[in-house]
Design a protein around this nucleic acid. Structure first.
Lengths: 367, 367
DNA sequence: CTGTTAGCGCATTCAC
DNA sequence: GTGAATGCGCTAACAG
């Protein structure tokens, strides 16, 4: 583990040219296995770590992946980031954090995003819940600069995205309540401009309809995904004539479910005996609130991990295309038509059963 | 905002050499103000963003700051990171994320850290709660590579660190309970090998002693900072003969306070009327648990922000030293004695009063 | 299979 | 004040 050590150093030690060393380091096929072995040994001995800055500059291709996160950020972005870090762990890539200042105007935020591209620091971008920033993010996604959104509020047709199965999660949540004998199940929706809010509502409707129950407009309210809106919505539900009151509430997310819990406590409504409550997200605090919240778990960790994996795949695909076409200009992916997979990956959610719905503790998976 | 734009491009447009452009970009004094103005205008027009990768390579000095975060990571690291992102926002620096895989052995983790240095990607490192990794982090901290720990479990003499005023926070928390009339105040300590746990205990003792009360060994238990240990500790306190039972519990952190809340609920002990509870940290969930938790708020955001600021200061100091000594080798800070400020910055904490202690809602600041 | 030759985009000596 | 030359550490074209 010498102070510093360049490719030239180990080339000298191995008695070969640095080109050859570079080749084995980059897993090129065309190197004699004897030489390769010797080089690898010396690399090991010296504890040589290539300078990815230089590699990026020379190769015209950075080894950094940008992570964009808006700062109105929720607890679970940590899980997402942990997943991303894990995926990047045994690669040559590293993660660069781009946090957007809340107080800035949307236009300023757009500027920040523009710079991400123009600075050419990163090879691609993972946007965690870009929300209002989506339009800017879209602009970045060109051939040569892959972008992927994670859990976006809106589906951008041209950009690949990863999300949880919101509809399916809502479906199993409501199914669970139905199996517990509830027939008057209310729902507090998230804002209509959130895709996930609409999907969850669809799952709710589907489960009811399959059970032969009508969706009662009076039992469906809309919140803003914040705790207080859940609180307010619950109050309105509690003020309904007693024969119209729900026996269960499926909240669009955990935060609003917390609001329901508070409202119930205020009104002296016992949970789960008088009212069952189910949320969506499984924030880490949902195991801590009292009563502990039954909720739909989103696979945040996996979403982050997969996001990186797919991005890396796209990056290496680009490389392949570039190489196979060579004969034209070296580094111009820009002029070729996009091979970009604009796919949508949807990950399964699962129901985490805790005290707030009155069932025994267990985990229910979708079938 | 052209597709790409290098320093040469704008040099051409301005009719000067790229050297001159480079000079104004780096705020060198020796450039004619007319030329400088013209260059700046063109830079603006073209939306030119320098390639920090190349700048790093050429200058021998990276513009990236590493952020090391262990993955047993708590909710509040988000706040810390947000603070760091904010501080970096209007500088040329960016943040690179290094997350350590939990499942790896301590030695493997050490290897990861070694690579952080040898890869020379970053100019310095901010270690968030390194804990067991501290020894490795220490090794990184040489002149030329500033390291700063944030909220470390242990004080490493040679490394500058930022932490909250744990002793002071505990002190005001207990003072608050005393002012509410409590005289039998229990404390659930964190693990003794955590510096912050010991400091909080000291604050507890100091407040009691100043009030003329003895620290009763029977009222001081030790947990592990996890919820369940708080639960167990509370149970033991509740099983004391009634005349020995505490009327208030100061938990070493919020998680353990949650455990106390659960244990109280289990035993039918009303909070705050029969028992006051105070935590430490102010996790975002502490406003959500029922009853809402009175707790000591740590300035996580500020800790992150300041961490970056100080690191940047150190970086620019190095630069100055390097420049002023030039005449010797250009980039060898290594052989010079360390100017490294090994200071310790301690930030004030504040008490957030909520329902669990029985006082009216307010915020108490240390005097 | 391997070595040689050129840069990547910029900062930093030196000259003028 | 300004420009020309050199190189950071590495990859990628080109020849053998």
């Amino acid at each position: 583990m010498k102070e510093k050590c360049t490719i030239d150093d180990i080339a000298r030690l191995a008695g070969v040219s640095k080109t050859t060393v570079s080749r084995v380091l980059n897993h090129k096929p065309d190197v004699g296995s004897a030489t390769r072995k010797r080089i690898l040994r010396i690399v090991e001995e010296q504890g040589f770590v290539p300078n990815i800055t230089a590699a990026g500059l020379a190769g015209g291709r950075s080894h950094l992946i940008g992570v964009l996160l808006p700062s109105f950020t929720s607890l679970y972005v940590l899980d997402i980031m942990r997943g991303m870090a894990e995926a990047v762990d045994d690669t040559l890539y590293e993660l660069v954090l781009y946090s957007i200042n809340d107080r800035a105007s949307t236009k300023d935020k757009g500027d920040v995003i523009e710079r991400i591209l123009t600075s050419k620091l990163t090879a691609g971008l993972l946007a965690i819940m870009p929300g209002q920033l989506s339009s800017y993010v879209t602009r970045l996604h060109k051939p040569g600069f892959p972008v992927m959104t994670i859990d976006d509020q809106e589906a951008i047709p041209s950009v690949p995205r990863i999300s949880a199965d919101n509809r399916g999660g809502a479906y199993i949540a409501v199914r669970h309540l139905l199996s517990l004998g509830h027939s008057r199940i209310a729902h507090i929706k998230g804002p209509a401009h959130y895709l996930c809010a609409r999907e969850r509502y669809q799952g709710y409707c589907q489960a009811l309809e399959e059970a032969g129950l009508a969706v009662e407009p009076g039992l469906v309210l809309e919140g803003d995904f914040q705790e207080n809106s859940g609180f307010q919505a619950a109050r309105r539900l509690f003020s309904l004539p007693s024969e119209q009151q729900p026996t269960a509430i499926f909240a669009g997310n955990d935060l609003m479910a917390y609001g329901v819990l508070s409202a119930a406590a205020e009104q002296g409504i016992a949970i789960p005996s008088e009212l069952a409550v189910v949320g969506f997200d499984d924030l880490s605090s949902s195991a801590l609130v009292r009563p502990a919240l039954t909720t739909v778990r989103q696979p945040f960790h996996e979403m982050g991990r997969l996001g990186v994996k797919r991005l890396l795949t796209q990056l290496s695909t680009q490389l392949y295309i570039e190489t196979s076409h060579n004969g034209m200009h070296g580094r111009k992916f820009y002029e070729r038509e996009a091979p970009a997979a604009t796919e949508h990956i949807q990950l399964a959610t699962s129901l985490v059963v805790r005290a707030s719905c009155g069932a025994s503790h267990q985990q229910v998976n979708p079938t």
